[in-house]
């Protein structure tokens, strides 16, 4: 075990990489000159299965790639789409950049917040939705824009928020 792992709350929490995930991570590793490069993809693979990246997964990924857990943690905390806390079943990313700002972002964020009863960075108490801001989603011709999980929507009118959320049980 690498000495840096004391940075983490625990040494693994008994977390075990799913065998299929481990295989995919090992395949990813072969796409690059050095194993560390597969680290971001590995975090995303774990996140796809668990919804977020628990402490134990940091240690497990570090072991699978032969690098230190502190390096994996350093990367995990840098990138905004790697979640180091539990999130809801569905993650809503609301574009808060300039074109959406001009076309109704404030009202959309308000509508989402009041409908869900949460602000940015929070998860509804039933564990269904997490609300996050995101950089320009490259869909500025249809602002205001948001993503729910893998789906991008725009323009999203305030009146449509309720129906849209309903379609993500």
């Amino acid at each position: 075990m690498n000495g840096n792992s004391h940075l983490l709350a625990s040494d693994g929490d008994g977390f075990v990489l799913d065998p299929e995930d481990r295989r995919t991570i090992e395949q990813e590793r072969d796409h690059y000159e050095q194993p560390q490069a597969a680290c971001i993809e590995a975090l995303k693979i774990v996140q796809r299965r668990h919804g977020w990246v628990p402490d134990g997964a940091i240690v497990a990924i570090a072991e699978a790639l032969g690098i230190g857990p502190a390096e994996v943690e350093g990367v995990a905390t840098f990138y905004s789409l790697v979640f180091r806390q539990p999130v809801g079943r569905h993650v809503i990313l609301v574009c808060d950049s300039s074109s959406c700002f001009l076309t109704g972002y404030d009202a959309l964020r308000e509508a989402l917040s009041s409908r869900l009863g949460i602000g940015f960075g929070q998860t509804t108490s039933d564990g269904r939705f997490t609300l996050l801001p995101v950089c320009c989603l490259g869909a500025c011709d249809s602002g205001p824009v948001l993503m729910i999980d893998d789906d991008t929507y725009g323009p999203v009118a305030v009146e449509d928020v309720a129906d849209l959320l309903e379609s993500y049980p």
């Binding site: 050095q34 560390q36 597969a38 971001i40 975090l43 350093g74 789409l81 790697v82 995101v134």
Partner: peptide, 21 residues
């Protein structure tokens, strides 16, 4: 990628590709 605008800067992109911050 996994988010962060700065990844588009060409040398930051290379660090990110290598699995670093």
């Amino acid at each position: 990628g996994a988010g962060r605008y700065i990844c588009g800067e060409e040398t930051a992109l290379i660090n990110s590709l290598e699995g670093q911050r």
